[in-house]
Amino acid sequence: MGEKIRVAVVFGGRSSEHAISCVSAGSILGALDPDEFEVIPVGITREGRWVLTSGDPSQLAIEGQKLPEITAASGELVALNQRELIVLDPAHGSSALASVDVVFPALHGAYGEDGTIQGLLEMSGIPYVGANVFASAAAMDKEFTKKLAAAEGIPTGAYVVLRAGQELGEADRQRLGLPVFVKPSRAGSSHGISKVHDWSELDAAVATARAIDPKVLVEAAIVGREVECGVLEGEAGGAPEASLLAEVRVVGGEHEFYDFEAKYLGEDCQYDIPADLPPHVTARVQELATRTFTAVDCAGLARVDFFVTPDNEVLLNEINTMPGFTPLSMFPRMWAASGLDYSKLVSRLVRTALRRGTGLH
Rank of each mutant, 00 (worst) to 15 (best):
300 G>T: 02
290 T>H: 09
188 G>V: 05
89 D>Q: 10
117 I>S: 04
83 R>M: 01
161 V>A: 04
166 Q>E: 15
15 S>H: 11
358 T>D: 11
141 D>M: 04
296 V>N: 04
239 A>P: 14
112 G>V: 03
312 N>W: 13
135 A>N: 12
266 G>H: 11
256 E>N: 12
218 V>D: 09
57 P>A: 04
287 E>H: 15
86 I>P: 01
284 R>A: 11
53 T>D: 06
344 K>H: 14
253 G>N: 14
296 V>C: 12
35 D>E: 14
306 F>P: 02
5 I>N: 04
297 D>E: 15
120 L>G: 08
98 A>V: 08
162 L>V: 07
309 T>I: 02
355 R>Q: 13
161 V>W: 00
57 P>V: 00
239 A>Y: 04
64 G>C: 12
67 L>M: 15
221 A>F: 12
194 S>W: 11
311 D>N: 15
222 I>N: 13
120 L>I: 14
316 L>Q: 12
194 S>G: 09
198 D>W: 01
24 S>A: 08
138 A>Q: 04
6 R>T: 15
193 I>W: 05
158 A>G: 05
97 L>P: 07
157 G>E: 00
336 A>K: 13
212 I>A: 10
334 M>T: 14
71 T>P: 02
65 Q>C: 07
256 E>Y: 07
282 T>I: 13
153 G>D: 10
20 I>H: 04
223 V>G: 12
170 E>C: 04
246 A>K: 05
294 T>N: 09
202 L>A: 07
331 F>L: 13
220 A>Y: 11
51 V>F: 00
39 V>L: 03
182 V>G: 08
109 G>P: 07
18 H>E: 03
74 S>G: 07
347 S>I: 00
155 P>G: 01
248 V>D: 10
245 L>I: 12
139 A>P: 10
201 E>S: 07
31 A>G: 15
249 R>I: 14
68 P>V: 05
251 V>C: 05
48 G>L: 07
139 A>Q: 06
119 G>L: 03
320 N>A: 03
278 P>C: 08
32 L>Q: 01
140 M>Y: 04
134 F>H: 09
11 F>E: 02
330 M>T: 11
45 T>D: 10
74 S>D: 07
118 Q>Y: 10
323 P>F: 07
332 P>D: 13
164 A>F: 00
3 E>A: 11
130 G>S: 09
140 M>I: 06
194 S>L: 10
351 R>V: 00
223 V>M: 09
4 K>R: 15
339 G>K: 11
16 S>F: 08
195 K>A: 13
194 S>Q: 13
90 P>C: 00
